[in-house]
């Protein structure tokens, strides 16, 4: 997928509403056939950026190219993109069939061809026979599928999805994630997804742009974001993370193994920390285990999450162990923490 050509090119795009900058100097490319996500909290500018791609908002500065063509003067109805709206925007006065076929008017198809295309889409979204349903007789998941079909029937170059799974309950959401991913692979269209749910973004995307306060903080693959976050904000937004002053962390893994020089912070994922109830024997090259005291234990089913307060400082660390590990003692018990050197991610202040 790395060899693919650029589909969307976002060049120095800034969007201001009055004095408030919703998007600041966004500058990146999205490749053809890629599943790309814009991940951020509400107000991070991700939806505004998506609406700029769709043409509903005009960028204050900068420009957007889609498939090589500048989009600045192209109104929404002439762009080669289609969108799945946050609440699906299913037309209430039309049935499923007419909703899906809405965009076909301009193609001037004959009746049979129109029907064939709509049936094909109904097949694709696994709702055959639902064509004559009124739009208000659909469940949340069905509405989502109809919105997808309505956008995909026009065979756009890019499909934009604005929090498409946000309105669904957890179980349905997970099922739809799988289907969405499979659908994207089968149609081969570039998908751009906006979401505030980092798990959803990780599960679906080839690459993710993390946004906050209108800025793109980092663009990377899910694994890259998780394992190599560049800033503290990205690190804390994607998964849970412990942050330690540099010297303290280096002590725990041994100076010898540390080759990164000076860092303001060290970040360590909770699942990379090993919890010991007995003082582990010093191993060659390893640092000293950090002593602490268990302050809390949360049983999460597949994992158990501990809070450990390090001796001699106020620092709390989260430790997450698989449930297969022997269940350790109650809060108050003294424990020791160790971790491998490669688990440490050096971060600068941001």
């Amino acid at each position: 997928m790395n060899s693919a050509a650029t589909m969307i090119s976002i060049r120095n795009v800034t969007k201001r509403f009055g004095v408030f900058a919703a998007v600041q100097d966004a500058c990146f490319d999205i490749r053809a056939g890629e599943f790309f996500s814009l991940l951020g909290a509400s107000g991070s500018g991700k939806t505004t950026l998506l609406r700029i791609l769709a043409g509903f908002e005009a960028a204050t500065e900068g420009e957007v190219h889609i498939d090589g063509a500048p989009m600045d003067a192209v109104p929404p109805h002439q762009r080669p993109v289609n969108m799945v709206f946050q609440n699906y925007a299913i037309f209430p006065h039309l049935n499923v069939r007419d909703n899906i076929g809405f965009g076909l008017r301009k193609l001037k198809l004959d009746k049979a061809e129109r029907a064939r295309r709509i049936d094909e889409m109904l097949e694709l979204i696994k709702l055959p026979g639902f064509g004559d349903r009124a739009s208000d007789q659909l469940s949340g998941g069905q509405r989502q599928r109809v919105a997808l079909a309505r956008a995909l029937i026009l065979r756009p170059k890019v499909l934009l999805l604005d929090e498409p799974l946000g309105a669904l309950d957890k179980q349905l959401r997970e099922q739809m994630q799988t289907e969405l991913r499979a659908l994207q692979r089968s149609v081969g269209i570039t998908f751009v997804l906006v979401t505030h749910d980092q798990e959803e973004a990780m599960a679906l995307s080839d690459r993710i742009a993390v946004m906050a306060d209108g800025r793109v903080l980092q663009i990377d693959t899910p694994a890259g974001l998780y394992e190599r976050p560049k800033t503290r904000r990205v690190a804390s937004f994607v998964g849970s993370m412990n942050f330690l002053p540099g010297d303290l962390a280096v002590r725990a893994c041994g100076q010898a193994a540390w080759q990164h020089g000076k860092a303001d912070f060290i970040a360590i994922r909770p699942e990379r920390i090993t919890l010991h109830t007995d003082h582990p024997a010093d191993q060659a090259g390893a640092g000293q285990p950090l002593p602490g005291r268990l302050t809390d234990r949360v049983y999460l089913g597949e994992r158990v999450q501990y809070q450990v307060q390090l001796d001699g400082c106020a620092q709390h660390l989260a430790v997450s162990t698989p449930n297969t590990a022997p269940v350790v003692a109650d809060p108050g018990t003294p424990v020791w923490l160790t971790w491998p050197a490669e688990a440490m991610i050096p971060l600068q202040d941001d």
């Binding site: 929404p76 109805h77 209430p92 039309l94 809405f102 301009k106 026009l154």
Partner: peptide, 26 residues
């Protein structure tokens, strides 16, 4: 939802057709 009209524009209709195909029926 204003997204109804945006959806129609997104699906290729200009202002005139959006008005007659979506706004007026609703």
């Amino acid at each position: 939802d204003a997204a109804m009209e945006e959806a129609a524009a997104d699906l290729g209709e200009n202002g005139w057709w959006v008005f007659w195909r979506v706004t007026v029926p609703i």
